[in-house]
């Protein structure tokens, strides 16, 4: 699996990280090395093996349907970059 610098830019866009052309080139070198490492997996026959998402074989615990949280808007918005009338402000959302 070989990556191109346009792949890097596409992935970076999906991840919402700005990369310049030079950065994409430099990143490409390092990512290719890491992907080379990852490629070792392809040598293993994993037919029929159940993927392991969690280390313990336990099931989801359920929370009783009770309101336990109170209004902490003031505390949470004290660390927000931009707020107005209790709303978080962002550049205009276009639908």
């Amino acid at each position: 699996m070989s990556l191109s610098s346009s792949d890097v830019k596409r992935i970076a866009h999906l991840a919402r990280i700005e990369v310049s052309d030079e950065e994409a080139e430099a990143t490409l070198q390092k990512l290719s090395g890491i992907l080379g490492l990852i490629e070792q997996m392809q040598a293993v026959d994993t037919t029929g093996i159940v993927p392991m998402s969690h280390s313990q074989d336990v099931v989801q615990r359920l929370r009783p349907d009770v309101v336990t949280e109170n209004d902490q808007r003031a505390a949470f918005q004290a660390i927000a970059p931009a707020v107005e009338n209790g709303l978080y402000l962002v550049p205009k959302v276009i639908e």
């Binding site: 999906l14 990512l31 890491i34 997996m41 392809q42 293993v44 159940v50 993927p51 392991m52």
Partner: peptide, 25 residues
Amino acid sequence: LIGTYVLSAGYYDAYYLKAQQIRRL
């Protein structure tokens, strides 16, 4: 970027799922 790549369309099975299978091994 690596994580985004291995989860992206067309690569999930070859990377993520495979890794979870080997994790079990």
